[in-house]
Simulated assay, not measured.
Amino acid sequence: MRFKPESVFMDVAAIEPGRDFRKAIDKSVATCSVVLALIGQEWLDLRDSQGGRRLDDANDFVRIELASALRRDIPVVPVLVRGAKMPHVEQLPDDLKELAYRNAVELTHARWKSDVQVLLEALRPYLDVRDEDATVAHREDRGKEPGEPVEEVSGVHGARSRSDPAAVASKIEPQTMERIIKELAPYIGPISEVVVKRAAKRCSSVEDLYGMAAREIETETDRAKFLRSCRS
């Protein structure tokens, strides 16, 4: 009840029949400002119907969502529930190893309300929450009018900034961003505009933006080609 409902991407509800869920998840995660990885006691060793560990399945929804966020360097917050512990780096597949180094937030039954407030405060910097929203949150704590809701993903929660990522001001000149978008589009498609403008918010130089945009390209050969075209 803290952020607007449209701020949350829930894969099981948002992916239409017939769509490639891998591409749909990747595209949706790319627009998120922060991702919450909800980790319970069985999360690390949960098995599929064939007895294999779900985290070892490259097509598992949760793995795809987390790997997509980590690859883009989107903030990923592990949320530990029911006494769960953080996984060690050697227990995770290669594309999830970075998760082991992310600071976690714990939600406990005994301290539920205060723990949730800690989580909300951790999310505020990523979601462009205005100062007046703090007043709304205070009212909610006292049982008055509810504020603005958050969003959800199966096993992973992705929260989008209230502002359109493509509309947020950046230190990078618009003409430069447009050129990078144009150079990136042949490799990842129309989502290049969202990716570049979102990345520009976290870059202090054009060179940083080149590097962050290059991470979206799958092969090393194509990444090198993209960087050469940007710098020429």
Rank of each mutant, 00 (worst) to 15 (best):
F226R: 13
V81D: 00
G158C: 09
A84P: 12
G211V: 04
I39P: 13
G158N: 11
D60W: 15
D164Q: 13
R231Y: 00
V35G: 04
D94E: 14
E193L: 03
E65W: 00
Q117E: 15
D57T: 00
R72I: 05
D48Q: 08
P149I: 13
V79K: 12
I180G: 11
L80C: 07
E216H: 06
Y210E: 07
R53F: 14
E183D: 06
V29C: 03
S28R: 13
I172Y: 00
R54Q: 12
P78I: 14
I74Q: 03
V12S: 13
V153N: 14
E207C: 10
A30C: 11
C32R: 01
L44A: 10
T219L: 02
L36K: 11
H109C: 05
G211E: 12
C32S: 15
R162C: 06
S192I: 00
Y101D: 13
V194N: 03
A24F: 02
W112I: 11
F61P: 07
G158Q: 02
S161Y: 01
Q117A: 12
V168F: 01
G18R: 04
P149Q: 07
E152P: 07
V81A: 06
R19N: 13
D45C: 10
R47W: 07
G143L: 10
Q91A: 15
V77C: 05
I191N: 01
I217D: 01
H88V: 14
R19K: 14
D57E: 08
E218Y: 08
D222L: 08
Q50G: 08
V129E: 14
P5W: 05
V129S: 12
A199V: 00
E98D: 12
P165R: 01
G158W: 01
A185V: 04
A100R: 04
E173Y: 09
Q117P: 10
E178A: 13
K113P: 03
V77F: 04
L227R: 12
R2D: 08
S28M: 11
Q41W: 10
E145G: 13
Q117C: 07
E42K: 15
Y126K: 02
E16Y: 05
Q41G: 11
V129N: 12
L66H: 08
D95A: 02
D60S: 14
R54E: 10
F9S: 14
V29G: 06
C32I: 03
G211F: 09
L120Q: 14
Q117I: 13
W112F: 15
C32D: 00
P87L: 09
E152F: 11
A104T: 03
L119Q: 14
M177S: 02
E178N: 15
T176R: 08
V105M: 09
E151G: 11
R63C: 02
C230H: 02
M1Y: 13
A30E: 06
F61Q: 12
V195N: 00
A137C: 11
C32Q: 11
E207L: 09
P190E: 09
